[in-house]
Design a protein around this nucleic acid. Structure first.
Length: 358
DNA sequence: AAACCGGGGGC
DNA sequence: GCCCCAGGTTT
């Protein structure tokens, strides 16, 4: 664990003094603090800011006032009230967990870490928040706001997604967590990160920890927590078949409507030369392989595609259906083409003799 | 355009 | 057990 900047008692004293004056004390789930209300609010807050969540929370509680009502509801009803919040998997998990709570826990949220985190959609931090907020028992939280605050306060190096960094932050969170006033303490930690130790503009002038914050003393508060390392783009490889008929037309296929190049027209694509040849055997038995052009790279936001164009020639035009057509490079039809396919076809046109540059 | 986020899931 | 991703929004 990084060296704590304060004793737990000093940390709690400063934080709670700040919270009493500047924290949020009138959120809907702060009145009538049942485990159920805290749970639903925590799930909603995982994905959305407080101001947006409030009306959704109110509607949800009116329609599903308790675990049993939620468990009995149709999933569609639940997702209907979730509409606009996004991340529907979490709405589905909430519903599924309600049914498990009815079946396995007699309709009451189990207030221990292990049983809570076994429920779908509830992990270590959310389980801690539910326990602390609804029972006042000691439990540790580490959501995004807390991670950011602790990382700055101690200048914890590295991206919190890394196991070692996460372990350090959990250890610090554990170190500072008090035995008393857990409801206020956990709310204070979340509020502190959300409203003062913000990601973009931390309000260090108003911060009760400015004198001990390592990042602030170094003038580097914006550097923590470190962001996810930009990974070098992975490279995938593919072969694109340029099958030409005697008139020089090229066979195109329409791609599936979703996914990469969804709905656009492209060349038949294969992972390797063997599957390309197998495809030719069944679709154009008279075709003869021509030469392969040198590979070139097409860059996407999340990967690089190394494309090896493979020429082939056939005598007659083989079967064409709704998702196949013969494309004349000298007289191009107006159809949507994937960018690298377009440059390949232009390279085939009578006015160009060379494959595209890489 | 990129960062963000707790949990789930793949390996 | 480690790492990556989904899925919308915020910056």
């Amino acid at each position: 664990m990084p060296t704590p900047v304060l004793s737990p008692e000093a940390f709690q004293r400063r934080l709670l003094a700040w919270f009493d004056r500047h924290g949020r004390h009138d959120l809907p789930w702060q009145e009538e603090r049942s485990p159920y209300r805290v749970w639903v609010s925590e799930i909603m807050l995982q994905q959305t800011q407080v101001a947006t969540v409030i009306p959704y929370f109110e509607r949800f509680m009116t329609r599903f006032p308790d675990v049993a009502t939620l468990a009995e509801a149709d999933q569609d009803d639940v997702l209907h009230l979730w509409t606009g919040l996004g991340y529907y998997a979490r709405g589905r998990n909430l519903h599924k967990a309600a049914r498990e709570i009815v079946e396995r826990h007699a309709g009451e949220l189990p207030l221990d870490l292990e049983a809570l985190s076994a429920l779908p959609g509830i992990g270590r931090s959310t389980a801690g928040a539910i326990i602390a907020q609804s029972s006042g028992r000691r439990a540790v939280i580490l959501d995004g706001n807390v991670k950011r605050s602790l990382a700055r306060l101690h200048a914890v190096e590295g991206w919190p997604g890394r196991t070692a960094v996460s372990r350090s932050l959990w250890a610090l969170a554990e170190h500072y967590t008090p035995e008393e006033r857990l409801v206020d303490y956990t709310q204070a930690m979340m509020d502190f990160g959300a409203t003062l130790c913000r990601r973009g503009q931390p309000d260090c002038m108003a911060c009760p920890f400015a004198d001990v914050c390592v990042a602030h003393r170094r003038g580097e508060e914006r550097r923590f927590p470190e962001s996810k390392p930009r990974k070098a783009l992975p490279t995938r490889t593919t072969r694109m078949l340029l099958l030409q008929d005697p008139e020089g037309r090229v066979l195109l296929e329409q791609r599936p409507s979703s996914g990469l190049w969804g709905g656009l027209w492209g060349l038949p694509q294969f992972d390797d030369i063997a599957s390309l040849e197998a495809w030719l055997d069944s679709h154009a038995p008279d075709a003869e392989l021509g030469r392969a052009w040198s590979p070139f790279i097409h860059v996407f936001s999340h990967f690089r595609l190394e494309i090896t164009p493979q020429l082939a020639h056939c005598r007659g035009a083989s079967a064409v259906d709704e998702s196949r057509c013969w494309y004349d490079p000298g007289n191009p039809a107006s159809i949507g083409l994937a960018a690298p396919v377009k440059s390949l076809l232009m390279a085939l046109s009578p006015f160009s003799l060379e494959p595209p540059a890489s």
